[in-house]
Structure formats: C-alpha cells, structure tokens
C-alpha cells in the first residue's frame, strides 16, 4: 500500500475545470515531482492534498485512511508537513521559536496558558535547525533572514511534526540557483533517511530532473504522463504540452535561463 493514494480528484471553479480525474500514488521515501505549464492546475491539486481546498470529487488517502475532508490542521496531525510557494513563517518570532511553535502544536500544548513558550522543546528545535543548516541563526528574528533561509526554516517547521509525507509547493521559487540545489539535496537526504514521501511542484527543470524519483505531468487539469525523469523527457505528449519551451526540457547541465 502506498503512503499517499489519490483517486479521481476533480475541481472546477465556475465553469473552468482546474483538475479532472487526477490519480496517483506516492511511496515512503519517494520524491515525486508534479510539473506542468502555468495554469495547469498544479496548485489546485496541491491544495486539495494539503487540505486548503475542498475537492468536488475523488479521494485522498494517507496510509489507507481517507483524509479527503480533513482540514489542514488534522492532516498535520496525521503526518503531513508542507511548505508554501511564498514562504510562510512567523515573522514576529525568532528562527528557533518558529520551530518551537510547531513542536508545541505537535505536542498538543498550544493552549497552555502558563509557562513561557520560548523555553519549550528548545533542544529539539535546535537539532532540527541543525539538520537544515540554520543552527547559528537560531536566535535571530525570522524577519531578518534572507528568503532562501526562510525556506529552510519552513522545512524545519514542516519536519517538526515528524511527517510521513512532505508537500512542497515550488520549494525553490525565489531562490538563487545554487541555493536551489542545496535545498533539494538536503530534502532528498532527509526523505531518504527518515523514509518520508515528498511531493513537490517545481518550475525549475534542473531541480525536477535532478531530484525527482518519478515525475507527474499535469496539463489542463489532467495527468498526461507519469514516469521516471528520463522517460518524461522523451514523452511526445509532454513535449507537445511544453511546445515552444524546449529549454525547459533540456537535459541537466544544458542551457539555463
């Protein structure tokens, strides 16, 4: 049984179909990329799996349990961590406190009225920050970090819930190319070590073909192709979808934008 199982997921806004009969699975420890041209419905699919958007039909199951109708907070409790296309962090807190906040929630202490928050689960937070390479910045205000580092904080926060599944919506958007590879290497390493399944969308084909074990191609709300990176690159339907965007499918190490 796969970790994540998506069956017949559909969503339309007004008359516009954003997702139609989307089905796929994802295993523990696997890195799965969801790609497609702009407006293909990637974010819609993503937000239906994350719980931010209710689907019109279909099911989403995690470890065999139906989570289609659960709000995001319940999915977190079931082991889904996520990052956002535009990084979402608690900018009024320090870096460590961001992670501590997630740990406090994970331990069900968010409504405790006594005992300072800043001393709770600090060691655990520091070790998570260590893993994403931000240990030194632990006590800096999150608002003072570079954008790339905020993305790392997000990753540490997502990991604080001890997730089985990590959803990353354009994890490298807005980052410098070198940072992108570093972040995805880190993610892949963590996924492999903790046997976490990772579903991510991405525009940068270097990132996709460099890190994804498997790739899903979404065009006009439908999955048109699925397979390994190499298979996808050769797929004529994908080429058609990306017509005029030849560079996007070039082999790694090719021309960069």
């Amino acid at each position: 049984m796969s970790l994540l199982d998506v069956q017949g997921l559909g969503k339309s806004f007004g008359g516009v179909v954003a997702a139609r009969n989307v089905r796929f699975g994802l295993d523990r420890g696997e890195m799965l990329a969801l790609i497609g041209p702009n407006g293909a419905g990637k974010s819609t699919v993503f937000n239906m799996i994350g719980g931010q958007l209710p689907p019109d039909g279909g099911t989403v199951s995690l470890d065999g349990a139906d989570i289609t109708r659960l709000p995001p907070r319940e999915r977190f409790r079931r082991g889904i961590g996520r990052t956002f296309q535009v990084a979402q962090a608690f900018l009024s807190m320090s870096v460590a406190e961001n992670v501590q906040m997630a740990l406090i929630s994970h331990h069900g202490e968010s409504r405790a009225l006594w005992g300072p928050a800043r001393t709770r689960h600090r060691d655990e937070a520091l070790s998570l920050l260590e893993r994403v390479g931000l240990a030194e910045a632990a006590d800096r205000p999150c608002a003072a970090l570079a954008y790339g580092d905020v993305k790392r904080v997000e990753l540490a926060v997502a990991l604080a819930g001890a997730p089985k599944l990590l959803l990353m919506d354009e994890p490298t958007a807005g980052m410098a190319p070198r940072e992108r590879a570093a972040l995805m290497d880190l993610t892949a390493e963590i996924a492999a070590r903790d046997r976490i399944g990772v579903l991510f969308t991405e525009h940068d084909m270097d990132v996709v073909f460099g890190h994804a074990d498997r790739v899903l191609v979404l065009v006009r709300g439908e999955i048109v192709a699925e397979g390994t990176a190499d298979a996808i690159r050769e797929n004529p339907r994908v080429r058609e979808a990306y017509l005029g965007d030849a560079h996007a499918l070039a082999a790694p190490g090719g021309a960069r934008p």
Partner: peptide
C-alpha cells in the same frame, strides 16, 4: 505562554498556523 505564541502565529500567517 504557548497560547499567546499560538495567537501570534495565527496573526503572522494563518496558512502556516493551520499547516502546523
């Protein structure tokens, strides 16, 4: 306390707060 921090978390980012 954690409760005050939770409120701040929701103020800073509802999406993030919900996701944790």
């Amino acid at each position: 306390a954690p409760f005050g921090y939770s409120l701040r978390a929701m103020r800073d980012s509802e999406a993030r707060a919900e996701a944790i």
